[in-house]
């Protein structure tokens, strides 16, 4: 079976000459379908850079990256936007919903950019909002929702396009403890349904929800172990 993520000797260098910074120094990582992976590390360890590369928001300086069997190394900007749209669902620390736009319209957005017709979009977006428990909030705008609700809308938006990979960057970083457990429960639920999840976090308690934890130090993987859940 093709792994969802296959990274080989990935490096990322920022700047040049004296100001050159090596953010990643050669990452080898394979994530299989159905895995729930947590990436940990102190700030500056390179975890955000790795997340950008996995999310096809950025291109590695060297190395080889395959996402769901697609070679990402050589793609141009427009091809990358298609990959992001079809293969990846993003969940951000700061929710990143479009302001002044209803929850339903936010969730519809990935389908809109994919070219799905209006009626099907509404049906699928409504279903996705129902799945995260916000069926009664479809016509609320982000500023009318609590942080936990906004993040659940973001989860619905990440899921609605049925991506191969759910990519979460500190998804609970801006949430109180109750909302945190709500969102984490939701992600457990998605995992149970067989989705592949990669989550970046610096909290041990959050990482403990995953079934595999890798830790980055100075742009290299320093530990990679499975949790006993």
């Amino acid at each position: 079976m093709t792994p969802v993520i296959s990274l080989q000797q990935i490096t990322k260098v920022y700047g040049a000459g004296e100001t050159e910074v090596q953010a990643l120094r050669g990452i080898d990582l394979t994530v299989n379908r159905g895995d729930y992976l947590a990436i940990m590390g102190a700030s500056g360890s390179g975890k955000s850079t790795l997340m950008n590369i996995i999310g096809a928001l950025d291109i590695a300086s060297s190395g080889h990256y395959e996402l769901d069997g697609i070679n990402i190394d050589s793609l141009d900007e427009s091809a990358l936007s298609i990959v992001r749209n079809r293969k990846i669902g993003f969940i951000f620390q700061s929710f990143n919903l479009i302001p002044r736009t209803t929850a339903l319209a936010n969730v519809e957005l990935p389908l809109l950019y994919r070219g799905v017709g209006r009626r099907e979009r509404t049906t699928r977006a409504t279903a996705a909002l129902g799945a995260v428990g916000l069926a009664d909030r479809t016509h609320h705008e982000p500023n009318e929702l609590s942080g936990g609700q906004q993040q659940r809308v973001a989860v619905a938006r990440a899921l609605v396009a049925e991506p191969s990979l759910l990519l979460a960057d500190e998804p609970t970083g801006n949430l109180d403890s109750r909302s945190t457990s709500d969102v984490l429960d939701l992600m457990d639920q998605m995992h149970a349904q067989g989705r592949t999840i990669v989550m970046i976090t610096h909290e041990d308690s959050v990482a403990a929800r995953a079934d595999r934890i890798i830790t980055l130090i100075d742009g290299l993987i320093s530990s990679d172990h499975r949790t006993t859940r």
């Binding site: 427009s78 936007s81 749209n85 990143n96 957005l109 950019y113």
Partner: peptide, 10 residues
Amino acid sequence: GIRKAIGASK
């Protein structure tokens, strides 16, 4: 940026 991340083309 958000729109691009979720797949909006140029």
